[in-house]
Design a binder for these strands. Structure first.
Length: 109
DNA sequence: TCCATGACCGACT
DNA sequence: AAGTCGGCCATGG
């Protein structure tokens, strides 16, 4: 498997519990720039390892639709159990829950 | 090899 | 605010 994917998985595994990251964000962290590759990496992820794929969402803060319906609901449940709160029942407040690898959350601006 | 599709993103209408 | 379009790259037929 491409080391790039490995890198992607490594980054995803670094997402703390109770927080989420977007595809674009991970793409930038991985030094890729093409978010689609992240999606593809996750697609082939299958069940190979214990990567917390559920903490990866799209730029809108929503759960990306996938091949099987009901999966999104499953992902939503996993996130809620970690303390992530949904708005409008589908959307996550990125300002609040997005993973900040370099900057702490308390942005006391 | 060429063409179409995808767990996306951003800009534009 | 919601829908459309182009970009960029990997995978499969």
């Amino acid at each position: 498997m491409d080391p790039i994917y490995k890198h992607i998985y490594t980054i995803i595994e670094q997402i703390p519990k109770g927080r989420v990251a977007t595809y674009g964000q991970i793409a930038r962290l991985a030094g890729i720039g093409q978010p689609r590759r992240i999606g593809y990496a996750l697609r082939i992820l299958h069940e190979e390892n214990s990567t917390p794929w559920h903490r990866v969402i799209n730029a809108k803060g929503e759960i990306s639709k996938r091949w099987e319906m009901g999966c999104e609901d499953h992902q939503k449940s996993l996130l809620e159990e970690e303390g992530v709160i949904f708005e409008s029942n589908i959307r996550i407040s990125l300002a609040q829950f997005q993973w900040q690898p370099r900057t702490p959350i308390n942005s006391t601006k």
